[in-house]
Design a protein around this nucleic acid. Structure first.
Lengths: 342, 342
DNA sequence: TAGGCTTCCAAAAACGTTTTTGTCAACGCT
DNA sequence: AGCGTTGACAAAAACGTTTTTGGAAGCCTA
């Protein structure tokens, strides 16, 4: 009833008001201004349901957060900054970001959730986070012909839009640094290989070793969830193995903090007897004992790139295959790693 | 076009199909089943826009996450579990939780955001988190006559639905424990007093001191954001004051971790020379050096209570004034605190 | 001055539901 | 036998937009 009230109030037709409000140019500047002013005064805001019903557009981009119940949390770690960045960019394009949670980590429920989200017409575009090596969500989104961008890559030959941080480079850097410190037995505390980022990190790690002629040792490569507890447990196991590593690169700062605790428990001096590096440059990493050498990646910036990409896709300014952005990383040296003691 | 297709396919009228699907009882069980079955086969799902336009209901509960850009993060700390709990309950009631981010911490933009969310008809109910002592959002939501529940309380005489953890009790416990350890100069590293939880924590702290006849010392009560850095800085300042505290209770585990770092820097042995307790029982708290004595509060459970309350409100089963839930807390003792050394 | 272009605005038809109001038969009751 | 009730379904009117179609002035050119 609202736009008709406004139109009546102005002595104009509904269509004129609508077209003015939607920025069409076939309405005289004078009346356009008059309409805008009155709309503001009267507090008119278009009914989203009606607009959506008619136009099929929601002005919403959606993200489904894989969160509670999943050992590998997403929300806790990077979501805040990432989504902040996305939202900041989307906002200028007139879109909003809405998130919903995925309570269970059950594949069939996941598919149902995405199907509902997409087919139900809740959103105009999608952000897919925490991509897996084989990710049913991206094949689904592609099939549904809904614009989407992923945060993280996936294994497919089909074109799709992604932005990612350079996980491979990150772990190449971290590992090579250990090698240059003289370490040869370098362990990798990684996330589940089901996630593509874990693959890439393993790749970077392997590349550094290969470059320096060090053989890969499967016993030094462990996978767990990304938590402190996991880092603690794996480090503990590593330390009590027949030939323990002298250096450890970790998939998250949280794991590294766990590893620190394990070393402490064993009375091993981190930064001397064993060299540890984390990933993420979390706020906690600067305050651990010793402060963590880690990898900084610009999450907020990643979010902004995602937002921009989404906008370009939505406006048809780019094709999915054109959008690839790899964010560089930088190693921040602190005190948890150091030269190998002979 | 979809329900008409379905109706045509079944040789029934649109209204019958609609009523069957919506669970009205004026359709024969046999045809009802037939309709449901065919709907499933055909993959019919009601257009949310149309449904919403007609009925005015969205089946959505909204929450606006105060996140990036704000020094006092919310998403990072508790959101994951809390929202998970909310979502889990809401789901059984046929509602979904959608979240949107508040990018800037600007009061006027905040009001605009909430106004849009509510007046725009995006959601049927609201969850308001991180309540402030004087919170414009709850007065706004009340005025708009939209069902809502807050996580955390606020200062008002008007009835409203809230669930909260017992912040006051938590800090009473933590503080009294220090007193029983023989400490007299106990510092409080608190959050901004603008937030109600900070007030309550201060209250609990003060109550414990009062109970044991210890005078409040304003110099021992500091406020900062909830980060490690903040805890570090405040602890540092405290330690170099003329008469430093022998115990410190912190508003978050992150702050406590920062405080730990400050003590380490000074060569002060935590758990002996100075007694520190955190709050939140974060996953990191068990792996710090020393492991943190902290307060555990059941965030997921809080979320469930919120979800249930929302549902009751939405169904008209309860009035806002009837819904109050205070979650008890429990102190988890570890090694960062201990008896005062003489 | 007639014809054709613009410029500005209006009428009206959707979009896919929900809901109100009926209709029509069958049934039970007095 | 007549009458109200009930049970199962249908017709049609909204809900508030957007968009297509079109029309009336006003202006320019030949």
């Amino acid at each position: 009833m609202s736009i008709v009230l406004l139109a009546r109030d102005l002595g104009l037709s509904i269509s004129t008001v609508s077209r003015a409000l939607n920025g069409y140019d076939d309405v005289a500047p004078a009346t356009r201004d008059r309409i805008f002013q009155r709309a503001r005064e009267i507090g008119y805001r278009p009914n989203p349901g009606a607009r959506r019903l008619k136009s099929g557009k929601t002005s919403l981009v959606g993200v489904i957060l894989p969160s509670a119940g999943d050992g590998v949390r997403f929300v806790d770690s990077v979501a805040s900054s990432l989504l902040g960045g996305v939202e900041a960019e989307l906002e200028v394009g007139g879109y909003s970001l809405i998130a919903t949670m995925q309570t269970r980590n059950d594949p069939v429920r996941e598919t149902a959730l995405y199907e509902n989200f997409i087919k139900g017409g809740w959103v105009d575009a999608l952000l897919i986070v925490r991509t897996r090596v084989n990710d049913p969500r991206v094949v689904f989104a592609r099939k549904a012909h809904i614009p989407f961008v992923t945060y993280g890559r996936t294994e497919t030959t089909a074109p799709y839009a992604w932005v990612d941080t350079d996980n491979e480079q990150a772990f190449f850097l971290a590992t090579e640094r250990q090698i240059e410190f003289g370490h040869r037995r370098i362990a990798l505390l990684n996330g589940p290989l089901e996630y593509y980022f874990a693959r890439l990190r393993e790749q970077g790690y392997a590349n550094a070793l290969a470059k320096h002629g060090i053989a890969l040792d499967q016993l030094l490569m462990r996978n767990g969830d990304l938590s402190e507890m996991s880092g603690y447990a794996m480090c503990r196991s590593l330390l009590s193995s027949p030939s323990p590593p002298t250096a450890i690169v970790c998939a998250t700062d949280a794991m590294a903090v766990g590893a620190l605790a394990a070393c402490r428990e064993r009375g091993i001096e981190v930064g001397k007897a064993v060299s540890i590096v984390g990933y993420g440059n979390s706020s906690a990493s600067a305050f651990s004992d010793p402060p963590l050498t880690t990898i900084d990646h610009a999450v907020f910036d990643n979010g902004r790139h995602i937002g921009q990409s989404l906008l370009r896709l939505l406006r048809g300014e780019a094709k999915p295959g054109d959008i690839h952005y790899l964010e560089p990383v930088v190693l921040v040296p602190r005190n948890s790693d150091g030269p190998r003691i002979a």
